[in-house]
């Protein structure tokens, strides 16, 4: 029986580990290690291999949930990870100094995969700012020729992550449930 996968990516601390845990049917596995100097100020540990979760569908089918390593020096794994993936969830930390730059980086890094599948963007930690800045993410995406689901999310809220995934699949095919 074929297995499938959904890829979660984004910068360190954007909530990939938490988002995967929110929808995984097994305790999410995170291979954490002591952070490098680059990331130590943000997290005491960060994901250097990958996060992993699993959805077990009725009938035994499995959907693997992979979180890309948070540190860019592991980007050699990204092309391997995305092979055969159903879609990409990009999580962006709105409280970082340059979240739009982060977005640009990941759009470029996963450009080929996005063109073949679908992208959904979740912007986290938006409550740290006085008002929503979602519009500027939309503007940047539009300039890149993309109109994709882009929501503020709290990665700890299962309902937020589910809605983002639903949007990912309906964006692939709005007629999915038109029976």
């Amino acid at each position: 029986m074929p297995d499938h996968k959904i890829i979660f990516t984004g910068p360190v601390g954007a909530g990939k580990t938490t988002a995967i845990a929110a929808v995984s049917d097994i305790p999410a596995v995170s291979t954490d290690a002591r952070a490098s100097d680059m990331t130590r100020s943000m997290k005491s540990s960060t994901t250097v291999a990958m996060d992993y979760g699993l959805m077990k569908l009725d009938g035994g089918e499995k959907v693997h949930l992979y979180g890309t390593p948070g540190q860019e020096r592991f980007d050699f794994m990204w092309s391997i990870l995305t092979e055969g993936g159903l879609g990409l969830v990009l999580l962006l930390d709105d409280s970082r100094p340059d979240p739009l730059g982060d977005m640009e980086f990941f759009l470029n890094a996963f450009g080929g995969f996005i063109r073949k599948t679908q992208l959904a963007v979740g912007v986290t930690k938006t409550d740290l700012r006085p008002r929503s800045r979602l519009g500027i993410y939309h503007d940047r995406l539009t300039r890149s020729g993309m109109m994709v689901p882009t929501f503020e999310i709290d990665a700890r809220r299962r309902s937020d992550v589910i809605l983002l995934l639903e949007a990912l699949f309906f964006a692939l095919d709005p007629g999915l449930e038109a029976e």
């Binding site: 689901p149 882009t150 503020e152 809605l163 949007a167 309906f170 709005p174 449930e177």
Partner: peptide
């Protein structure tokens, strides 16, 4: 553009209509 559905009242079929 997509509405910020995680922060709005989402009724049945809203995500499909948006898509």
């Amino acid at each position: 553009r997509w509405p910020n559905l995680t922060r709005l009242v989402v009724f049945p079929n809203a995500v499909r209509i948006t898509a």
